[in-house]
């Protein structure tokens, strides 16, 4: 006899649990029981069988290329040359004196800092504002999310037209404010802002949605109690919302850092087709790796650059973890 609680959902669960104990009838049921028992008995085997193919695939398409890249970084490897000697750490020493790589690293770092700060600050502000118009928020989130699902290449091509110094709509719009024409993609000092602008536009919606989820999980009672105690909106933001959002903020900072540090497609598209519409050759780390690997065919050196990038991003993430640690000394995630 199953006692009824009055709650239809919990009653259903209880009936299901109870039915697990009762011996099922028929051949099919018997097979099911055997199967269930074998899972309980050989749990590890079933886990391996279930995850094995996924893990194998992961090893083939993720782990193996990483290990192979590390191996290549110790060789002078040109795909069309038969002689591929082991060069030890030469490729890494070369990194230290490579002006192009240094420029690319500096550019990428500057771009990444700007893009992360602007994107996340804007996303947080928009998410907070959207929380005050709860009913209309999904519509705005959807609108902001459209650029996220737009592939980088067509998005960058559209922005290339917008940035055109003579025929572009951006300069045309700015001219009404009395701002002189800017060579967005041609001026070596301006191009970084153009790329930041495109990147912020592209990724803002994603982080608005993430922050939106985080904000919705803050209990209303907390905010109402603070309001009753006389806390201003600013105080509620600083002392309740931001501390409660710390794990989400850490997540977004890490994800944004990884995304923006790997910037390539917008830079490539915005500065490509240099013959007709010239653009400044803005170097980024992934662009340098691409050029060394697939234009100069210095696969070994490109491998060393990739390993250096991996280490650099890992260090950045570790620094971010350290900065966001709570007072008890553990990562607040």
């Amino acid at each position: 006899m199953i006692p009824k609680s009055g709650n239809r959902f919990s009653d259903k669960i209880m009936r299901k649990e109870n039915s697990d104990e009762a011996p099922p009838r028929g051949a099919l049921a018997a097979r099911y029981v055997d199967f269930r028992d074998s899972i309980k008995r050989d749990h590890l085997l079933w886990v391996v069988l279930a995850l094995g193919p996924i893990f194998a695939l992961f090893c083939i398409i993720r782990v193996y290329p990483i290990l192979e890249t590390i191996r290549l970084s110790f060789y002078r490897y040109h795909p069309t040359q038969r002689n591929r000697p082991f060069v030890g750490l030469d490729n890494y020493w070369r990194l230290l004196e490579d002006d192009s790589f240094r420029t690319a690293l500096t550019n990428t770092l500057q771009f990444c800092v700007m893009a992360v700060i602007i994107t996340l600050t804007l996303a947080f502000l928009v998410a907070v504002l959207l929380r005050s118009i709860e009913k209309a928020a999904p519509v705005y989130e959807l609108l902001l999310y459209i650029p996220v699902v737009t592939p980088w290449v067509p998005a960058s091509v559209i922005w290339k037209w917008i940035f055109d110094p003579i025929h572009g709509i951006l300069n045309y719009g700015l001219s009404f404010l009395g701002i002189p024409k800017l060579a967005w993609l041609q001026d070596e000092h301006v191009i970084i802002y153009a790329i930041v602008l495109v990147s912020v536009w592209k990724m803002l919606g994603y982080f608005v949605v993430v922050y939106g989820v985080g904000l919705r999980n803050i209990p209303d009672e907390l905010l109402e109690a603070a309001e009753l105690d006389g806390a201003t909106a600013w105080q509620r933001l600083i002392y309740i919302v931001i501390p409660m959002m710390k794990p989400i903020i850490l997540f977004t900072v890490i994800i944004a850092t990884i995304i923006f540090f790997n910037v390539f497609a917008p830079v490539y598209v915005l500065t490509a087709s240099a013959q007709g519409a010239p653009a400044y050759d803005f170097k980024v780390v992934i662009g340098e790796i691409y050029q060394n690997a697939f234009v100069f065919y210095r696969m070994g050196y490109a491998g060393a650059q990739s390993v250096a990038l991996l280490i650099f991003v890992l260090m950045l993430v570790m620094i971010q973890f350290a900065l966001f640690r709570d007072r008890r000394g553990r990562a607040d995630v």
Binding site: P165, I166, A183, Q186
Partner: peptide, 10 residues
């Protein structure tokens, strides 16, 4: 000038 269309397109 860099701002002008260049090459064959220009």
């Amino acid at each position: 000038d860099w701002a002008l269309k260049h090459d064959a397109q220009g």
